[in-house]
């Protein structure tokens, strides 16, 4: 591995920041909107769904898919930046 120790640490640090950002969104849509605040959100109607119910049964799943692909693209960029891609 031609990478210096500082570079490796910087890469890992940025990787962790990316993970934490996306995991925060993951937590908010599923445990937040779908569990903790579901009753409050249910007061709002969203295309015929109570909003909290929609998040709990469908919305969170759409967000999960989007999150993984956003993560893939962020990591590809990061790998290029630090020249660790394959």
């Amino acid at each position: 591995m031609s990478m210096t120790k500082e570079n490796a640490q910087a890469y890992w640090g940025e990787n962790l920041r990316i993970i934490i950002t996306y995991m925060a969104i993951w937590f908010v849509v599923s445990f937040g909107c779908g569990v903790l605040f579901v009753d409050a959100l249910d007061q709002i109607q969203f295309f015929g769904f109570p909003l909290g119910f929609w998040f709990a049964q469908q919305g969170s799943i759409f967000v999960f898919v989007a999150l993984i692909w956003a993560y893939v693209s962020s990591m590809n960029k990061l790998d290029e930046k630090y020249d660790v891609h394959e």
Binding site: M1, M3, A8, Y11, W12, V84, H85, E86
Partner: peptide, 8 residues
């Protein structure tokens, strides 16, 4: 440390 770096 090694598994944290994709290359290889």
């Amino acid at each position: 440390e090694d598994i944290r770096i994709p290359r290889g």
